[in-house]
Design a protein around this nucleic acid. Structure first.
Lengths: 156, 156
DNA sequence: TTTGCAAATGACAACCGTTTTCATTATGAA
DNA sequence: TTCATAATGAAAACGGTTGTCATTTGCAAA
């Protein structure tokens, strides 16, 4: 029964209730995994890990939970080109942990980088403002990825 | 028998031969479609259009051709989040036609924008240089997409 | 032009990540 | 504790994409 601490659980209940969802053992376990993970996990990655600490959980529930977490804005879903979606916790209130991706097109390794983010984000905000005016979009997210070959794959 | 002009065909033969591929009617038809298309086509979109001008072509061939065109760097493959890949011709030698995407997360409409590209690309080049040094990647592409709600979906 | 052979093709099946279905179980408000 | 309702697991269905294999085609060499 993987529950971290009361404070967090309270907060979770509030957040979930606000969106019309219930807090269940499975959902807590999945959030737990995502908090601990330092990589970009696929649904199956998560399923296998959840299964360790809470064997009753099924793959379907993992998919369903990821879907509502994304809808709630608590996680982001990425496509790195290997045919399965990857998930990671979204950054906190103040945008801490915000990063972009560097993807190896050969081995699919993904590097999170935060370097140069400030300059990038500044320009992005500006672009965002101009684009939303010109095209009448309300923009609420962006995706930046660089593609190339990592050190290993380069030397082959 | 969809062949545009001799010059182009010559050039194609050279390009394909250089990569060890043959120029076939189906491949020419698919390139034709991509040239004429002003939208981001899915494999099935292309299949249906090719089927009109060259009914012998099958969906498998479309996928195989798209695969080699991507490998040759002649087209880019995108994921806009609707469960199927989208394809478009890559920009020319001098980067003309380079653009980024504005994606509606509700109706999946995609707007290509070239506004502000210059400033963006300048910063990107710089970032690219620094990232490749720091992480030992050889970077050869980037993806920038903004997500939000288009005019129609916003007002609902 | 003809020939020969490797590459390309189409029909169809297989694949595999994801979603749906449905009967059962768990949550949380009363 | 009770109860309506949301959440769940197992299994089947789904759908975009890839693999298989017998046949056809492109094209270089004769």
């Amino acid at each position: 029964m993987p529950v971290r601490n009361k404070c967090c659980e309270q907060w979770l209940h509030g957040k979930f209730k606000g969106c019309g969802y219930k807090v269940t053992t499975g959902r807590q376990a999945i959030l737990d995994i995502l908090h601990k993970a330092n990589k970009h996990l696929s649904a199956e990655d998560i399923y296998l890990k959840v299964h360790n600490i809470y064997p009753a959980a099924g793959l379907t529930t993992v998919y369903r939970t990821l879907e509502i977490l994304e809808k709630m804005g608590m996680i982001y879903k990425f496509d790195f080109g290997d045919g399965r979606a990857r998930y990671e916790l979204s950054e906190g209130e103040k945008g801490e942990n915000h990063h972009h991706h560097l993807v190896c097109t050969n081995c699919n390794q993904v590097v999170d980088y935060t370097d140069f983010i400030d300059k990038e984000v500044k320009l992005l905000k500006e672009t965002e403002r101009e684009l939303s005016k010109k095209y009448n979009f309300s923009i609420n997210n962006h995706l930046i990825q660089f593609y190339g070959l990592c050190e290993k794959c380069k030397s082959k």
